[in-house]
Amino acid sequence: MTDQPIFAGTHNTIMPCAFWRSEAPTRIDIDNNVPTLQIQATGDTRTTYDEGLGMHEAMKGSRLVTVPGRTHAVFPGYANTCANAAVNSYLLDGTLPAEDVVCE
């Protein structure tokens, strides 16, 4: 908590959604090959990077855009032109990066 003395208690605590059980967990088919763009921050405050890598591995047709930073909502609020360009391209015409991308 010392690296976030003001907001650590707010952003690194159990949130109400941790207790919501309104729907069954999403099951990803082993043969999943849907072309999906996944954006993952290395310091995500809600989904750890390892969890993001696990989802990327499960989603066989996905491309991963890794963004260094401590944020949960990378697009559109996090100012990273590399990630924003990948998302905008995907939303505009469904184009995925040719390979996984690590943004600076």
Rank of each mutant, 00 (worst) to 15 (best):
24 A>Y: 09
35 P>C: 12
54 G>P: 05
23 E>H: 14
79 A>E: 05
25 P>G: 10
44 D>S: 10
101 V>T: 07
6 I>G: 12
92 L>S: 07
29 D>H: 15
45 T>Y: 06
40 Q>H: 12
6 I>R: 15
80 N>F: 06
89 S>H: 00
97 P>N: 04
38 Q>N: 11
55 M>S: 10
71 T>Q: 03
38 Q>F: 12
68 P>F: 06
16 P>R: 12
3 D>F: 03
60 K>F: 12
78 Y>V: 03
47 T>A: 13
10 T>H: 11
28 I>L: 09
57 E>V: 05
85 A>G: 04
3 D>G: 11
4 Q>G: 07
69 G>R: 02
47 T>L: 14
95 T>K: 10
25 P>F: 13
97 P>Q: 03
94 G>D: 04
16 P>T: 08
64 L>R: 01
41 A>F: 07
76 P>R: 03
4 Q>F: 07
15 M>S: 11
102 V>K: 00
88 N>M: 04
44 D>I: 07
60 K>I: 14
104 E>A: 12
44 D>N: 11
79 A>S: 08
44 D>W: 04
69 G>A: 07
84 N>F: 13
37 L>M: 11
4 Q>I: 05
44 D>Y: 09
31 D>L: 11
50 D>A: 14
19 F>S: 03
83 A>R: 02
32 N>I: 13
27 R>T: 13
58 A>F: 10
22 S>N: 11
50 D>Q: 13
89 S>P: 01
89 S>N: 03
35 P>E: 09
50 D>Y: 12
88 N>F: 03
40 Q>Y: 09
73 A>M: 08
5 P>Y: 07
93 D>P: 09
87 V>L: 04
54 G>L: 11
91 L>P: 01
58 A>K: 14
63 R>P: 02
92 L>A: 09
13 T>D: 09
48 T>R: 13
51 E>L: 03
62 S>C: 04
99 E>V: 00
30 I>K: 12
67 V>Q: 01
87 V>M: 05
81 T>M: 08
18 A>N: 13
65 V>N: 01
87 V>W: 03
36 T>L: 15
59 M>E: 00
88 N>P: 01
45 T>G: 07
54 G>M: 12
49 Y>V: 15
42 T>H: 11
62 S>V: 05
16 P>M: 10
64 L>G: 01
86 A>T: 02
97 P>W: 01
4 Q>S: 09
81 T>H: 11
100 D>R: 00
56 H>N: 05
42 T>L: 14
104 E>R: 01
53 L>D: 03
70 R>N: 08
9 G>H: 15
17 C>E: 15
15 M>K: 13
67 V>W: 01
12 N>V: 14
59 M>F: 10
17 C>Q: 15
1 M>P: 13
4 Q>A: 08
10 T>S: 12
87 V>S: 02
1 M>H: 09
93 D>N: 05
32 N>K: 15
87 V>T: 02
7 F>C: 10
71 T>P: 02
54 G>W: 13
55 M>R: 09
9 G>A: 12
